[in-house]
């Protein structure tokens, strides 16, 4: 029976574990400063995603107009495509008095539909993080499972599964994603399914090759001789060996997932307006027409996408160098 720990001891142990984790992280950042930069960029995006509500100064969906009605525009002048650092007086909707007004400040200006660009970029981070993490998670889980079984069982099953993976991979990722998302209708889940559809075959290939080599090791024979079941061998003895390649592949695929999500919105099959903000959507259709009037409206989302993907790539590269140099270049 496990001895019961007193709360103090638990706290000390947790504290030590966190300390050890941070020390390892510190060593990683010192050894691979570029990986540290990548981690830093990703952390910024993740913080923006979690605390969008606190960071975004305005409601990302609200369309602003100046509280000075004219005959042409009875609601007041729309604050369309304003440059950065614009401030304006707008009606205050939070009070009952319709004449109340408040001052708003647009850090990066407004978009074509008079919405605060910075707030939309911040909420766009939430969108990118949620969609890419979810799809990478689902795709990796399926891919790991398929790869493990296919590599471990071998024989006919392996042959058939590998042909399925071949066929699946012969369809370009973007084409597969567009077809799935359009067919299932534009929703968050169909985008997640569409993106994970190109992740699982790639993951399953890598996991299969690791499984093929690991299952020949003597300790696997030893486990079998001790009477371990196939499931136990797979999950207790082989799966842990695949963790390093999985983590490395995941960090690379997150970048790809973000780009595919943005490309879907760009092509008009992903998320649609009105939305709280998606980096890809901010680069598509209506917004692009005004590229000459306010280029930054189109440049900012691209900069955010690029920096996030850049961060994921840097981190992935560095983790690969540290943990598994054999995988370099995949």
């Amino acid at each position: 029976m496990a001895t019961r720990l007193n709360p103090l001891e638990t706290a000390v142990r947790a504290f030590n574990a966190v300390g050890r984790g941070l020390a390892r992280l510190g060593r990683f950042v010192r050894r691979k400063p570029l990986g540290g930069i990548g981690l830093f960029l990703l952390l910024i995006v993740i913080i923006m995603a979690i605390f969008s509500r606190q960071i975004a100064p305005q409601d990302p969906k609200e369309q602003f107009f100046r509280s000075s009605p004219t005959t042409e525009q009875p609601l007041g002048e729309l604050l369309r495509l304003k440059g950065p650092f614009t401030s304006a007086v707008v009606p205050d909707r939070s009070t009952a008095d319709p004449l109340d007004s408040k001052s708003v400040f647009f850090l990066l200006g407004t978009d074509n539909l008079s919405r605060d660009l910075f707030s939309r970029l911040v909420y766009g981070a939430r969108n990118a993080v949620v969609l890419s993490l979810m799809s990478v998670l689902i795709g990796t889980t399926i891919g790991t499972f398929v790869g493990l079984i296919s590599g471990y069982v071998g024989g006919m099953l392996d042959l058939v599964v590998q042909r399925i993976v071949d066929g699946w991979m012969a369809i370009p990722a973007l084409v597969l994603a567009i077809t799935i998302v359009h067919s299932l209708g534009p929703s968050t889940w169909s985008i997640i399914i569409g993106i994970s559809a190109f992740i699982w075959p790639a993951v399953s290939r890598i996991i299969r090759s690791v499984t093929l080599s690991v299952r020949e090791h003597q300790y696997v024979d030893a486990a079998r001789a001790l009477g371990a079941s196939d499931a136990r061998i797979l999950f207790r003895h082989i799966l842990p060996q695949t963790m390093a390649p999985i983590i490395i592949v995941v960090s690379t695929l997150i970048g790809a997932a973000i780009v595919i999500e943005a490309a879907l919105s760009f092509l008009g099959v992903g998320l649609t307006e009105p939305s709280r903000g998606s980096w890809g959507l901010m680069l598509s259709g209506d917004q692009v027409q005004f590229i000459r009037v306010q280029p930054m409206v189109v440049l900012w989302p691209g900069i955010f996408i690029s920096l996030t993907v850049f961060g994921a790539n840097l981190l992935g590269d560095s983790m690969r160098d540290v943990w598994d140099p054999r995988l370099r270049g995949i």
Binding site: A262, A263, R292, P295, V298, G302, L307, V309
Partner: peptide, 22 residues
């Protein structure tokens, strides 16, 4: 090369159009 890898191609295209236009 790592920079170009990170830029989504449709955005690179948009920027190229903007530059050639401006």
């Amino acid at each position: 090369s790592i920079g170009f890898l990170a830029m989504p191609i449709f955005w690179t295209g948009l920027v190229a159009i903007l530059i050639s236009l401006e």
